[in-house]
Design a protein around this nucleic acid. Sequence first.
DNA 1: TCTGGGGTCCTAGGACCC
DNA 2: TCTGGGGTCCTAGGACCC
Length: 423
Amino acid sequence: MENKIAVIDANNFFVSCERVFNPKLKNKPVVVLSNNDGCVVARSNEAKKLGIKMGEPFFKIQSLVKIYDIKYFSSNYKLYGDLSARMMNIINEFCPDVEIYSIDEAFVNLNFLPDDKINDFAIKLKKTIEKWIGIPVSIGISSSKTLAKLANDYAKKNPSTNGILNANDIENIDEFLNKFLVEDIWGVGRRISTKLYRNGIYTAKDLKYANPDIVDKIFHINGLRTQNELNGLSNYDVIAECSPKKSITCSRSFGNKVVDIEPLIEAVSNYTTQATLKLRQQNSLCKAILTFVSTSRFIENKYFNSDVQILENPTNYTPILIDKAVESIKKMYRKGYEYNKCGVILLNIISEDDYESDLFVDDNLNKKQNSLMKILDKINSNYGKNTISFASNLSKQKKWIMHREYLSNEYTTNWEQLLTIKI
DNA sequence: TCTGGGGTCCTAGGACCC
DNA sequence: TCTGGGGTCCTAGGACCC
């Protein structure tokens, strides 16, 4: 029996989320912007047709926005995160093994179904998601993740499929693969594509039959895996358990340029607070913290620096990590630059359970710190983020805070805003 | 004026050891 | 003073994903 993997992927997810609570946006060109309203990160099909590219700076499309009356929104991650969770719950009700791959995408294992039930099952799943939460999805099915992604891609772009394609049903799979350039394949980016083209490998079909030695030379082990997957041999399993993060990043571009050290310290303290909360939520400790500062990439007077601090003992205690990050900022800060971004990355993450306390660690102190953090997390989760926060996070004029001028309401997580919906 | 954020995996090369 | 080769660990950087 053939292996059966499906990938379920929301169409233009952020835009679709905005449309759920604002039906007037239907059939109109809509874009969603990145933090600070900088770039376009999601586009409706109508906006795609106008030639707006993924990642395009918003200021560059101003004239298009006016001419075509394009609607635009800041990223509303609370709303998108909530709708994503609902979508994943529905998928989970249908399938035992679900791998949540990204905010809008999941791989599922369909081997529990007989072959002749697959298509009806996919239709039902798609309809249920659309009916219950109003998000349109596409479904691709095949014997490997890579082929399922191609099937999904095709289903999304070709209305005749009704948004679902089971590649296991395709009679002439080579003909199908010949429709895709190598750069359309999951795991093949721009750099590798260029090298493949230079070697005469243009389409997915070409890569399927390419000389493995050449593939290995330019694309290494991952290339060979992708090649296997194109041949229908699954090299990437559906991994249902969500594994703890191996690194946790928190960084933002600033709303305004920053030249003094104080706002940098304030921002980095804030980001460290957010990152350590995530660390505690997955019951982990980290052994190191990397802090970085940078100016814009697009100006002459550039500066980038990063600094790693190894911790004496693994920890998830916010004050210790803030101290380290602030120390790094002080070390890296240079006068005369216009900073536009800083951030922290928690590294060498281990599970709390795996940490056997060191002979020299004051175990009592550890326990006190732990319970203090738990109380703080609880209060902040019950009474709102930043009900209690750290001294270095407090300031009246947060110059660095990001702009989100065109934010929609948090309809699903804030009931007061729910009442403002106009139908 | 205005150009995102958060991840993972792999490789090459250096340091070190025997 | 000369100096091989293999193994391991670590880190920086590259490439990719959404």
